[in-house]
Amino acid sequence: MVWLNTVIQGTMLGGLYAMFAIGLSLIFGVMKLVNIAHGDLIVLSAYLALVITQTMGVDPFVSLLIVVPIIATVGYLLQRGLFNRTLGDDLLPPILVSFGLSIIIQNGVLVAFSGDDRRLQAGPLEVASLRIGDTVAIGLLPLLQFVIAVAVIVVLHLLIRRTKTGRGLRAVSDDQAMAQVMGFNNRHMYGVAMALSLGITAVAGVLIAIRGNFDPSAGPARLIYGFEAVIIGGVGNIWGTLLGGIVLGVVQAIGGAIDPRFQILAGHLVFLLVLALRPSGLFGVKA
């Protein structure tokens, strides 16, 4: 039963990792852009939510209604104004620009909010849990986060498969030149992809800020779990990314149960193992 609890906790943590990862997976799939500033944008969203909850006195979950559109707009503008100018045959310039963006965001946030640890308060929900027997306790907050993660992925799936915008994204991803011939504006579609990516990032940022503390330098540590979940699940596969996140979360939880020192290491080892044995990911399409 102790092990069952461990696996359940790991699964819920994995949902959160998947949230970090989906945004990365999406923009890499559509425009081969690796966004190093992804983790810092998560932290930026958390600070934005902090300002909104403090000034307006609303619940962090309500703040999502404001944070998500703002960050998504920022994403669209970033893509149109900055990243589109760097995209080309060479993968390196956009990576370097996102690296610079990461440093600017970290230090900007440090100047604005100081280095103090912050956290979003969700009241009694933070410690509420469902008890099943003596050993299994499912925290309501992690459960809610897991449900939100799955919901976001379902919505994203429907959006990509069923809507005109989704068709555009798929078209641009498959063949840029042909998509343009068919009347899609690539620059706009890239902007939309970044807006979606950062909108999801904003949700992840608010959720992580309720789960644990954050400070201006917390971004890069989040980024690595996102990358690992993407690679484990398979690049460009949304459901694979969710499963990749869950695999990462469960492996970390089991590693931690054996010895706390193995917690993070176990996750990295599985990531390396997948990279060595199935470079296209567990659920990816073989190249």
Binding site: V2, G10, R261
Partner: peptide
């Protein structure tokens, strides 16, 4: 002794148990 944990870990349920 519940052991050494990695700074920045997101899950402590194993140690708490």
């Amino acid at each position: 002794d519940a052991g050494l944990f990695t700074p920045g870990a997101a899950d402590y349920t194993a140690q708490i148990a």
